[in-house]
């Protein structure tokens, strides 16, 4: 690991008395692809806006490339590529007009890269942005962002609303840039498969609080699933540290746990299960369990069965 490109210190933002981001302290190492995860309203976009100085924090602070986020000088902004949520592009601008507009602000502009990305997304330069499909518009935004060859790329939910093909193209372009230019990327997403494919580190926000900040591998190791089978109705569970979800399916109790240790194993033994089996869990499933509402639930099919 090298120096941190992004560093936050107790970063907090309140909107009308409600916390949007609370006490967020994390760092993003240089050259990493950092996935920023969380459910809707968990505070991902607010964090990105705070990082870029687009809104002022209620307390705490952050630095980008060593500078205070609230006072980023224009020269530094030139080194930070940012793609806001929703792929905003001025609808009346043609792709080449958009290039001319954005290019005028930068001293460094890779026109070849811009046109290569356009070509990749099959965008003709004379097409107005408002006439582009959602995927193409995302491609245009990405081309405009990548053409500056930034040191740091911040993408706010870049794959939102894209079909699988467009998403694939998009990630492909992103990965290309990372490899070619040793760029640090921070991107937020709901799409776990995308994160799994490109990210090497992740941060997870849950209800405005940072709950995880680690490598993908660490995350995968720390979340595990245990299936407990009982002879009869599964009993009520005692308090299990690190329990994310528990699902009752007939005589079976399926637990998803995080940071499981000896204390947890001890607690499970006391329940009196006929068998306890640790089953492999994919990253996507681990994410889903991690981001899902905590607590016990019953299988949907059990409900159906009960009614019939």
């Amino acid at each position: 690991m090298t120096d941190a490109v992004i560093q936050t210190d107790k970063l907090t933002k309140y909107y009308r008395g409600q916390p949007a981001v609370e006490d967020l302290s994390m760092s993003v190492p240089q050259g990493s692809v950092f996935g920023f995860l969380g459910r809707n309203g968990s505070g991902k976009t607010t964090t990105i806006r705070l990082l870029l100085g687009l809104t002022a924090p209620t307390r705490g602070g952050s630095t980008l490339l060593g500078h205070d986020s609230q006072h980023l000088p224009p020269q530094l902004r030139a080194q930070i590529g940012y793609m806001p949520e929703g792929h905003p592009a001025y609808g009346w601008m043609k792709a080449r007009e958009a290039e001319r507009f954005h290019k005028s602000f930068y001293t460094h502009w890779n026109g070849d890269l811009f046109h290569a990305v356009l070509e990749h997304f099959r965008i003709t330069p004379n097409t107005k942005a408002k006439h582009l499909s959602r995927g193409m518009r995302a491609g245009l935004c990405l081309a405009l962002t990548l053409a500056t060859e930034p040191k740091l790329l911040i993408l706010d939910d870049p794959a939102l609303g894209l079909d699988p093909v467009a998403r694939h193209s998009f990630l492909e372009s992103m990965v290309y840039v990372t490899r070619e230019h040793n760029c640090t990327i921070l991107f937020s997403s709901h799409l776990l498969s995308d994160v799994e494919r490109v990210a090497d580190r992740i941060a997870v926000l849950d209800h405005s609080v940072l709950r995880a900040c680690c490598s993908v591998e660490t995350f995968r190791q720390q979340v595990r699933q245990v299936v407990m089978r009982f002879d009869g109705e599964p009993p009520a569970l005692p308090a299990v540290p690190g329990l994310l979800t528990s699902l009752r399916m007939g005589n079976e109790l399926r637990l998803t746990l995080v940071n499981a240790n000896g204390e947890v194993d001890q607690a499970m033994k006391q329940v009196g299960a006929a068998s306890v089996e640790t089953v492999p869990i994919g990253l996507e499933e681990a994410f889903l369990a991690y981001l899902d509402d905590r607590g016990e639930r019953t299988s949907f099919f059990d409900h159906v069965g009960a009614k019939s």
């Binding site: 609370e22 006490d23 307390r59 705490g60 709950r211 900040c213 329990l243 995080v258 905590r294």
Partner: peptide
């Protein structure tokens, strides 16, 4: 006030959000 790092009355630092046992940090 939530805007201050320390309480304006007693000077205590703002308490971080309570951990819920699911934290993963390396």
């Amino acid at each position: 006030l939530v805007s201050r790092l320390n309480c304006e009355h007693c000077g205590a630092a703002c308490a971080p959000p309570a951990p819920n046992g699911t934290e993963i940090f390396d």
